[in-house]
Amino acid sequence: MDMRTPLGRVRGLGSTNDGVKHWWMQRLTGMALIPLTLWFVYSAVQMSEASHAEFTVWVGTQGNPVLLILLIICMFHHGQLGLQVVVEDYIPSESTKMTLLIAIKFAAIVFGTSAVFAVLRLTVGSS
């Protein structure tokens, strides 16, 4: 005999198993990305013809490294949340879905961490 309540049985059976947090983090990172991406477009235009030396100076200038790292974190976090929804919506096969979700999450972490580490290498202790 099943002693669990109806609520207990259905909990965790949704598409993401974690809906509210997903929704909320998507809004939070989205809001953060409004100023961050606008700042980045402004900067990228100025860096479009930059040499390596000019780029390195720009990365290390004042708040730029922190803004870059914040941008990278929010961007990959927001991106993988969005890609997750697309996969969940359009991939009916459970095994393909899982494989893609794992690949997306791993790729976001790998690219995001590598990019943050790159910013640190270009700024911390560089001479």
């Binding site: 390596h52 390195t56 690219f111 995001g112």
Partner: peptide
Amino acid sequence: AVLLASWVISATYGP
């Protein structure tokens, strides 16, 4: 996003 990351990472490999 991947392109942006690659752009920044490329600078760590030198000029």
